[in-house]
């Protein structure tokens, strides 16, 4: 059984179509990355899978169950969790409150203290910042808090929208290392990135999204040496 199957989704903002007939899948235990330039429709696709947007056509299956159009809170309960673009913490709440509220669902709440221990062990800086308002954190700390909050929900599949956005290279490495560790603990990862080079280095398989259409897919090893990928993304990244 696949962890996630996205089958032919079309997504619109009113009359404007942003995602066209997109299909891809994620196997349990994998790290899969969805890469593409700014405005390609990555966020739209992810928000649709998470239940914040409804596709006009197509289906989304999570662990074999059709979850198309299901509200986000039901998806979170099932273990489909998204860490949104640009962190989106609750700025007037403490880091601790942000994390604890990540475990809002019934099941997650029972495991709250154990999960919190794991998260703080993974990101020790959050322990230090625990009584600070999230709005006062630096960009890297905010990203760790956002990922930590996502983990608190007890995800089976964790989807992350550009976690490297706006971070210094050293912090990007740190965040990607954390993703690797999270995956090693048994969480399937769907990573959306513009940082194509590093995303492809981390993931097992990749999909390329261009202006709302999926154009390339395959093992990341093959994609990294694909001339079309090199020309479109890696040439720029090498500058």
């Amino acid at each position: 059984m696949k962890a996630l199957e996205v089958d032919g989704i079309d997504v619109f903002y009113r009359d404007v179509q942003a995602v066209w007939d997109v299909s891809f899948d994620v196997e349990p235990g994998e790290i899969v990355t969805l890469v593409g330039a700014n405005g390609a429709g990555k966020t739209t696709a992810l928000r649709t899978i998470a239940g914040l947007l409804k596709p006009r056509r197509g289906t989304i299956r999570f662990q074999g169950e059709d979850v198309t159009g299901m509200p986000p809170f039901k998806l979170v309960e099932r273990g489909l969790v998204m860490v949104p673009e640009a962190r989106q913490l609750w700025p007037q709440m403490t880091v601790r409150e942000n994390l604890e509220l990540g475990a809002y669902g019934k099941e997650a709440r029972k495991q709250r203290n154990e999960t919190l221990g794991v998260v703080l062990q993974m990101f020790p800086i959050l322990e230090k910042r625990s009584h600070q308002n999230a709005g006062t954190l630096s960009g890297g700390e905010q990203q760790m808090c956002a990922i930590g909050r996502g983990l608190m929900a007890g995800p089976k599949l964790l989807m992350l929208d550009e976690p490297s956005l706006g971070l210094a290279p050293m912090l990007v490495r740190q965040v990607f290392a954390a993703l690797k560790e999270i995956n090693a603990r048994g969480v399937t990862v769907l990573l959306v990135e513009q940082n194509v080079n590093q995303a492809l280095a981390l993931a097992n398989r990749g999909f390329v999204l261009e202006t709302g259409h999926l154009t390339l897919s395959g093992q990341t090893r093959a994609l990294r040496s694909d001339p079309r990928v090199k020309e479109k993304f890696l040439g720029e990244a090498a500058l």
Partner: peptide, 24 residues
């Protein structure tokens, strides 16, 4: 309370609250 925190969470960032399992 969890309920009160959820109210503050929706106030401060509704999408993030929904993505954390809050029934908005």
């Amino acid at each position: 309370t969890y309920l009160g925190k959820a109210i503050r969470a929706v106030t401060q960032n509704r999408d993030a609250a929904m993505l954390s399992g809050v029934n908005a």
